[in-house]
């Protein structure tokens, strides 16, 4: 019988796995059929559909997180070939093989590639990254925002709390309480807002506590790694300026 043999292209993955938060990580290799326009998520879906390792033995499906699949939610952040980034926008055609997948170990690993980014949300609470608009009566509309300001502030608002900047920062580790670049940039965003500005001192003071803005060591990896191109180091330096001013103002006026 004439068999139509097509050179079947495959994609190799080396996935770092971990069964429980406390257990030791290990790696498993997978070789899956290539399809055009694959991204890392579709590769992981294929492994989930047919959890067989490259050596033919069966294993449990790999766990990962993803939501939007268009690089706006940040859920699928992981270390791909050594660089932290989103798996959804990591196209297989543009990656060197074997593709190495690891969790962002700066955060607690829940299982396989799933991490717990709770510290980032706690950081946003710490710096009060919101705009208080509630009152006992209708406070009316807030002041207008200048269009020129809105344009750069919009760039800061693209932050999706994905954690890539924390993963790339050498000062975010278990010996250091540094809050990380993302929350500092959010202070700049909310302090730029005409209504948010009314509470700017509260946010600056939050940055002037233990593990606040002083934890930045200027390695500038964050701005090079941010998938949304947020000018994180400019934000940090701008908040350095504002906290310095606030420090002297407090010393001299109290």
């Amino acid at each position: 019988m004439a068999e139509t043999t097509v050179a079947s292209k495959t994609v190799k993955f080396i996935v770092s796995r971990q069964d429980t938060p406390e257990s030791k990580p290990y790696t498993e290799e997978f070789e899956i059929p290539y399809r055009p326009n694959m991204n890392v998520i579709s590769g992981l879906m294929e492994i989930q559909r047919n959890p067989v390792k490259a050596d033919g033995s069966k294993t449990s499906p790999v766990c990962w997180e993803s939501n939007c699949l268009e690089e706006v939610c940040g859920a699928c952040s992981m270390v791909i070939n050594g660089k932290p980034r989103q798996a959804c926008s990591a196209l297989v055609d543009q990656l060197e093989q074997p593709i190495r997948l690891e969790p962002m170990r700066t955060f607690p690993v829940v299982r396989d590639l799933v991490i717990n980014r709770e510290r980032m949300f706690n950081a946003l609470k710490k710096v009060k990254a919101w705009i208080p608009i509630d009152g006992t009566y209708d406070l009316g509309p807030g002041p207008r925002m200048a269009e020129t300001k809105r344009q750069w502030a919009y760039e800061l608002s693209k932050c999706m709390t994905c954690g890539v900047c924390l993963e790339s920062c050498p000062n975010v580790n278990d010996r250091n309480s540094f809050i990380g670049p993302a929350a500092i940039s959010q202070v700049r965003l909310f302090n730029a807002h005409p209504t948010g500005e009314m509470n700017k001192e509260e946010r600056l003071e939050a940055l002037m506590t233990d593990g606040g803005i002083e934890g930045c060591g200027n390695s500038q990896n964050c701005v090079r790694s941010c998938p949304k191109g947020i000018p994180l180091t400019t934000s940090i330096a701008a908040m350095n300026r504002d906290t310095t001013k606030h420090l002297f103002k407090k010393w001299l006026t109290n």
Partner: peptide, 10 residues
């Protein structure tokens, strides 16, 4: 210069 907010932009 960065930490005291003197040089801010890239």
């Amino acid at each position: 210069l960065v930490s005291w907010g003197i040089t801010v932009g890239p």
